[in-house]
């Protein structure tokens, strides 16, 4: 089991996810510079959080056109699992690998805090270690995480079980107050139709050991380990 983490100029959670992957999978991932045009042999591609290209133009827009992204898109289309965290989720959307858009947070401010999430599906290589409907806690840290898609797309995502995580309160209710950034249907993370490409705003790599005050993030990497190893 060997992952590849793509490093863009301005990525800043690349080291954190490198540590998390090493910690949960026992193997150090490849770190791939954005100017590369080919990927090493890999079982999982990770697009890390950060501010690729300073978030200039639009979050993720320039990174989606980086040289390495052609290889990432090709590998993704051929079935290599892809995990996009925060800025990585924004890049996946800008690259057309996931539907919708991520807009500025409803309160127009950067938000960094622990949030409760409801696991909407365990039928994925990313969430098989959770229980359906389980309430988990993972921090967010973003300015542009307000998920938007037209009603039809949201309906389809729901129908096909492609909504993986939704913002909720500590009792699992997906209330408006719990919807920290104003996302459509409280969406925090979605998966593509083939269930191989997962983008989420929360940062699982920040909660992988008890000192982090939570270990739900580790479960996502453990799920991948179980599914792919």
């Amino acid at each position: 089991m060997k992952a590849a983490v793509i490093v863009f100029p301005g990525s800043n959670c690349d080291r954190d996810v490198q540590v998390a992957l090493q910690n949960r999978m026992g193997t150090a991932p490849h770190m791939v510079w954005h100017r590369e045009t080919t990927l090493p042999k890999t079982d999982l591609i990770v697009l890390p959080g950060g501010f690729s290209y300073g978030d200039y133009l639009r979050c993720g827009a320039m990174a989606a056109n980086s040289p390495i992204m052609r290889a990432v898109i090709a590998a993704a289309q051929a079935g290599t699992p892809v995990l996009g965290i925060c800025n990585g989720f924004q890049i996946l959307i800008e690259a057309g690998l996931l539907p919708g858009a991520l807009m500025r947070n409803r309160n127009l401010k950067f938000i960094c805090k622990d949030v409760h999430l409801r696991v909407e599906t365990t039928d994925s290589i990313f969430t098989n270690r959770f229980n359906n409907g389980e309430i988990i806690k993972i921090p967010v840290a973003h300015h542009d995480g307000n998920y938007f898609a037209d009603d039809e797309t949201v309906k389809r995502l729901k129908g096909e079980g492609q909504i993986v995580l939704r913002y909720c309160d500590n009792e699992g209710e997906t209330t408006d107050v719990a919807n920290i950034n104003g996302s459509a249907s409280n969406i925090a993370g979605i998966i593509n139709e083939e269930r191989r490409i997962f983008g989420l705003m929360p940062h699982p790599e920040r909660v992988i050991e008890p000192l982090h005050r939570g270990t739900h993030g580790a479960m996502i990497f453990d799920s991948l380990m179980e599914a792919l190893a």
Binding site: I111, C112, I208
Partner: peptide
């Protein structure tokens, strides 16, 4: 909460 106080994953 407007500051990323957890990046680098070493804030204990």
């Amino acid at each position: 909460e407007q500051y990323d106080h957890m990046v680098m994953a070493d804030t204990v």
